[in-house]
């Protein structure tokens, strides 16, 4: 069972989130502020935390910092009315994984929780499973029951990134910054070249596909 801890001083909001999250099959824990959240975590394990920022006693920033300092590395999703850029920056800086501003669309919240948990599993397992196919981050291998392909570092990271966030479109620049680094001499065509090579290598695979979105970039699509 997956535990989601809700930290918000508004009971109605917590109840609303609980209804949506329960429909998705998650088990929900409640805390009305940061202090209470730490108490709950002493007794129960949480796989994900949804925290408000503005709360009495201990706010969301302090809670996030305390948790990260104590080596808790479950995903933290901040949900708050504070929508200035600086607030987001502070939140991410302290170790939040995602940020949503109120008013929050509950369906989107659920989608994000799903994505965060999937990514958290990917990062703790260090592998991605798609059907019978496994991408192993440590060995840079793509394994299927019939075959094992070892990829050059950059190609593997590129594929891993695209398949970690299936259906999400990445611009060339984002992929560049993420895989080659900000200061890299390589230009965006390098991304195209690597995508081309990946397509050549995995053209025969039925598990996934790399799709070009004209004018925008690429996305990884997992085939049903």
């Amino acid at each position: 069972m997956v535990n989601v801890l809700l930290v918000d001083d508004n009971e109605k909001i917590r109840k609303l989130m609980e209804i949506y999250l329960k429909q998705e099959g998650y088990h929900v824990l409640h805390a009305e502020n940061g202090e209470r959240a730490l108490e709950v975590l002493d007794e129960t394990k949480a796989d994900l935390i949804i925290a408000d920022i503005m709360m009495p006693e201990m706010d969301g920033y302090v809670l996030t910092k305390e948790l990260r300092d104590a080596q808790f590395n479950m995903p933290i999703l901040m949900v708050t009315a504070k929508d200035a850029f600086i607030d987001k920056k502070t939140g991410f800086g302290l170790g939040a994984d995602d940020y949503m501003t109120k008013p929050v669309d509950m369906e989107e919240l659920v989608l994000r929780v799903n994505a965060l948990l999937r990514r958290s599993k990917i990062s703790s397992d260090k592998q991605i499973r798609i059907g019978d196919m496994v991408l192993d981050f440590d060995s840079l291998e793509v394994r299927t029951p019939s075959d094992t392909i070892i990829l050059p570092k950059k190609e593997f990271y590129l594929l891993y990134k695209l398949l970690s966030y299936p259906n999400k479109i990445f611009t060339r620049q984002e992929l560049m910054d993420d895989i080659w680094g900000f200061d890299s001499e390589a230009d965006e065509r390098t991304v195209d070249v690597h995508i081309k090579r990946l397509r050549e290598k995995f053209g025969g695979f039925s598990e996934f596909e790399i799709v070009t979105i004209r004018g925008l970039g690429y996305k990884g699509v997992i085939k049903p």
Binding site: I169, T171, Q173, G215, L216, G217
Partner: peptide
Amino acid sequence: RLDEQIRHVIL
């Protein structure tokens, strides 16, 4: 990068 920003908006 203005073009990149517009891409993000589209996304």
